[in-house]
Each structure stands twice: as structure tokens, then as C-alpha cells.
């Protein structure tokens, strides 16, 4: 069985203040979620308009991403008590997650490149079909596949 001393269990705050801190975090998360919801509905209203301002929509989407990261910070730091752990432990969790910076950049860039290719002559379907049609006569000549 695990040999845990009470000192190893994260418990740095006294009873009353800890419970207060938990509920404070709850209201904060609720506030952030409602703000996100408000922005989501604003985007919806913008999309309904005849000429949506795409820069504004993009700015609002960026803002929701930042609010989401703030929510993630509070959940991990307060609810999961990572903020109360010692620095070495925090770093072994946070540093590997930095890979996501490259991961997001590279893959979304790749997706965007595919879209650009799709919209050029080289990536469009009709020319692909043309190439396939050109290979068809080869079969009729009786050559094996």
C-alpha cells in the first residue's frame, strides 16, 4: 500500500479560506463561460447580417480562445491544486505541453495550405478527372494493369 505522510498531501490553506476560494473560482468560471456565450451569440448576430465583418468575427473568435485558456488556467491551478504543488512538478507538466505551440502552428498552417491548393487549378477536381480520363485509353489497348 502507498506510504503517504500527511505532509505529502496538498493542503496549504485553512478550512474556511479554501472553501471560499473554491466557490470564488466557480463564480469566475461561470462569468467567463457567460462572457464566451455572449461573444458566441454576437458572432451569430454578425453572421446573420448581410455583410459580416470578417476581421471582427476573427477578433471575437480570438477573444474566446483567450478566455478558454483563462478557464483552463483556473481549473488546473485551483481545482486540480497544481498551483499549490512545488515548482519542479509544475514544470514537468507544463513544459511538455509547450509542444502544442508547434503542433497547432504546423498543422493549422498545413490545413490552410490545403485550402489554398484546393482553390487553384492544380488542386481542383476537374483537372484530376482529366488526368484519369487520359489514362483510360491505355487499358483499351489491351495492356495489362
Amino acid at each position: 500500500m502507498s506510504q503517504v505522510t500527511t505532509a505529502e498531501i496538498t493542503h496549504h490553506h485553512d478550512d474556511k479560506s479554501q472553501v471560499k476560494r473554491i466557490w470564488k473560482t466557480f463564480w469566475l468560471l461561470l462569468f467567463l463561460t457567460l462572457t464566451e456565450l455572449g461573444i458566441g451569440l454576437t458572432i451569430y448576430t454578425l453572421h446573420k447580417g448581410a455583410n459580416p465583418n470578417h476581421t471582427l468575427v476573427l477578433a471575437f473568435k480570438g477573444l474566446v480562445c483567450i478566455l478558454t485558456l483563462a478557464k483552463a488556467f483556473y481549473i488546473v491551478s485551483i481545482f486540480m491544486h497544481l498551483g499549490d504543488e512545488i515548482r519542479n512538478l509544475i514544470m514537468t507538466i507544463i513544459v511538455p505541453l509547450m509542444l502544442f505551440v508547434w503542433f497547432l502552428t504546423a498543422f493549422l498552417w498545413d490545413g490552410n495550405a490545403w485550402k489554398n491548393l484546393r482553390n487553384t487549378d492544380a488542386g481542383s477536381r476537374p483537372s484530376t478527372e482529366k488526368v484519369q480520363q487520359q489514362t483510360l485509353p491505355a487499358k483499351e489497348n489491351g495492356k495489362p494493369d
Partner: peptide
Amino acid sequence: ISYGTIRFSQN
């Protein structure tokens, strides 16, 4: 991120 990649590749 895979979802994001596919979504970015669509018009």
C-alpha cells in the same frame, strides 16, 4: 488539432 486541420482545409 486534426479537426482544426481539416476545418482549415475547407472553404
